[in-house]
């Protein structure tokens, strides 16, 4: 190889090859850049769970690179029946006595007591998720889907998610429910237009 461009300005075969390579390389790089610039978007994509595909396997709680997981439960109250006997809230077999607002821990389904229950009127209670406590295990969702309206579902919370290039929960998801969605519409919410 020529030592330096300044000391060897002769057109040798090797020099010619290098110049050709440089031109070809520059063309390829600019070409790729131009194609990508046309296709790219400044906001890009983020990860989200399609609630219709999710089967609440529990991987979201354990496979995320964050601890606790970036996935938490979301409650679409407009789909909720405000049931007294909530299958997402109580452990199976538990019969609440009238007027109990917060039953003992062992009678709650949620392992971290992240579901808060508040009496509204008559037999109707409002259930809200404390996202700070929720670990995204999906136990409550299974209960609600099986016996209730399915108003609870898992979502990737974008104040937590670090948007790994390849999501490690997505790799482990048995139902292919994780997908890249446009960052300006980062949620797939049940009961909302999206």
């Amino acid at each position: 190889m020529p030592t330096d461009n300044t000391t060897n300005n002769k057109t040798t075969r090797r020099n010619l090859f290098r110049k050709g390579g440089l031109a070809a390389g520059a063309a390829v790089v600019t070409g790729t850049a131009a194609t990508l610039a046309a296709k790219g978007r400044s906001d890009g994509t983020v990860w989200q769970i399609d609630p219709e595909k999710c089967i609440q396997c529990g991987n979201c709680a354990t496979y995320c690179v964050l601890d606790p997981s970036a996935v938490t439960c979301v409650h679409a109250l407009k789909l909720c029946g405000y049931c007294d006997l909530c299958f997402a809230y109580f452990s199976p077999g538990f019969e609440p006595e009238a007027g109990i607002e917060a039953p003992a821990v062992e009678s709650q389904l949620c392992p971290t007591e992240a579901i808060k229950r508040r009496w509204i009127e008559g037999p109707h209670y409002e259930y809200t998720i404390d996202e700070e406590l929720c670990i995204g295990c999906g136990k409550c969702i299974k209960g609600c889907n099986n016996f209730g309206n399915g108003s609870l579902f898992l979502q990737v919370m974008h104040d937590r998610c670090v948007n790994c290039n390849e999501c490690s929960i997505a790799e482990a998801c048995p139902s292919d429910a994780f997908q890249r969605v446009p960052a300006n519409h980062p949620y797939l919410l049940k009961g909302e237009d999206h």
């Binding site: 990508l36 790219g40 978007r41 890009g44 994509t45 446009p182």
Partner: peptide
């Protein structure tokens, strides 16, 4: 697939 600007 919309590639993010940063990836490009």
């Amino acid at each position: 697939y919309a590639i993010p600007f940063t990836a490009v």
